[in-house]
Amino acid sequence: MAPRKLFLYVAGQTPKSLAAIANLERICAEHLPGQYEVEVIDLRKNPKLAREHSIVAIPTLVRELPVPLRKLIGDLSDTHKVLVNLGIGSSA
């Protein structure tokens, strides 16, 4: 099965953006190898892209599939919370 896509919205190199990128890479490598493909979207370069997923706060992680769409705001330092929102965990 082809990996599903995750969208991580960041704002250039703000501390939270950098932390979110590093945390998501680590979580995917450690817990979800090969399951997700991450696309980092820098809204500082192209703010218009925020409308695609109605992004308000940065950083925000978006999972489109499987439905329903899930959003997770913050630097993704809480691994358990990230896994639950990505559908890996008891409350998925």
Partner: peptide, 30 residues
Amino acid sequence: AEAEETLRAIRENEVDALVMRGSLADEIFT
């Protein structure tokens, strides 16, 4: 729920940038 989650994240210092809807274009506020 999404709005409440956004407010909570801002309040709890989990974000460091916001997307501001301008009349002409969106802007990023750090």
